[in-house]
């Protein structure tokens, strides 16, 4: 999904705040880098710098402009600020499918989001590092209700394969520790989008974002930043747009008033 400004010019365009959540080192920043720059860096530094990226996602009838907030590493010691996910309209909850603890953490985030975030938030559960699974070339994904991709692999010999996956009895070349079925089952229960991705090879990365873009309800879209819904939503109600009390601090013209005196 390249940034195709052409063609999207006439279509309505809306900004969507998308946040990434998940244990440190599951590949959140790598997924963003793959999506935004179609790039991957092995063993990169923990997230520094790229904390607020934008990427357009053109859909047939509209363009979604994702404002992607990376965690800036604040998840490392469980110190993510609530401000981070406030008003998020979409969240990518990422785990590393070679690391069982990361799914536990992902479930924690999902619960937190369901408790704290905007009611209309679209959440995608993403199992990353699919390239490390020896069925990894396959593109498993889609919404949680989609049927399982029957990707043939050395151990998909009959109906024991899932069980074996879950017991982590995979061949040495297969680092997968969380089966597709387990994660998908959970995603289904919670009503999440579900994908397995590889930021390294790029498998399914664009698909995650496109699926999210498609799942954002038309009603929660608006032209500018700020998100439709939020905690205290009942309180928001009136006057969000055209609200003359809102201030734009970035406005340099207004800032010019600093020097003169308005008496």
């Amino acid at each position: 999904m390249s940034d195709s400004a052409a063609g999207s010019a006439q279509k309505p365009s809306s900004s969507v705040k998308l946040v990434l959540l998940g244990e440190a080192a599951v590949g959140k920043s790598s997924l963003v880098l793959r999506f935004v720059n179609n790039d991957f860096q092995e063993n990169k530094e923990p997230t520094i710098g790229a904390a607020f990226l934008t990427q357009k996602c053109p859909l047939p009838t509209r363009t979604i402009k994702f404002e992607i907030w990376d965690t800036a590493g604040q998840e490392r010691f469980a110190s993510l600020a609530p401000m981070y996910y406030r008003n998020a309209q979409a969240a990518l909850v990422v785990y590393d499918l070679t690391k069982p603890s990361s799914l536990v953490k992902a479930k924690h985030w999902v619960a937190e989001l369901q408790r704290q975030a905007s009611p209309g938030i679209v959440i995608a559960l993403v199992g990353n590092k699919l390239d490390l699974a020896n069925d990894g070339s396959g593109a498993s994904g889609g919404i949680a209700t989609a049927t399982e991709n029957g990707v043939p692999g050395p151990e998909t010999d009959g109906d024991t394969s899932e069980a074996r996956n879950e017991e982590q009895e995979s061949a040495t070349s297969d680092a997968r520790k969380i089966s597709t079925r387990e994660a998908r089952g959970y995603a289904e229960e919670e009503g999440l989008l579900f994908f397995e991705t590889s930021a390294k090879t790029g498998v399914n990365v664009v698909e995650v974002f496109t699926a999210i873009a498609n799942a954002i309800p038309e009603t929660s879209l608006k032209g500018t930043r700020g998100g439709g819904a939020g905690a205290g939503q009942s309180a928001l109600g009136a006057g969000r747009s055209g609200d003359d009390s809102r201030v734009n601090l970035g406005d340099r013209n207004a800032a010019a008033a600093r020097d003169g005196c308005a008496c």
Binding site: Q74, S79, P82, A231
Partner: peptide, 23 residues
């Protein structure tokens, strides 16, 4: 959302520039 957003905003600034956070 209140004044508590202010320290969080500056903490994010710090984190983006490599600051390590531990609550």
């Amino acid at each position: 959302y209140g004044l508590g957003e202010l320290p969080q905003g500056f903490a994010r600034l710090s984190a983006i520039h490599g600051g390590t956070y531990m609550l």
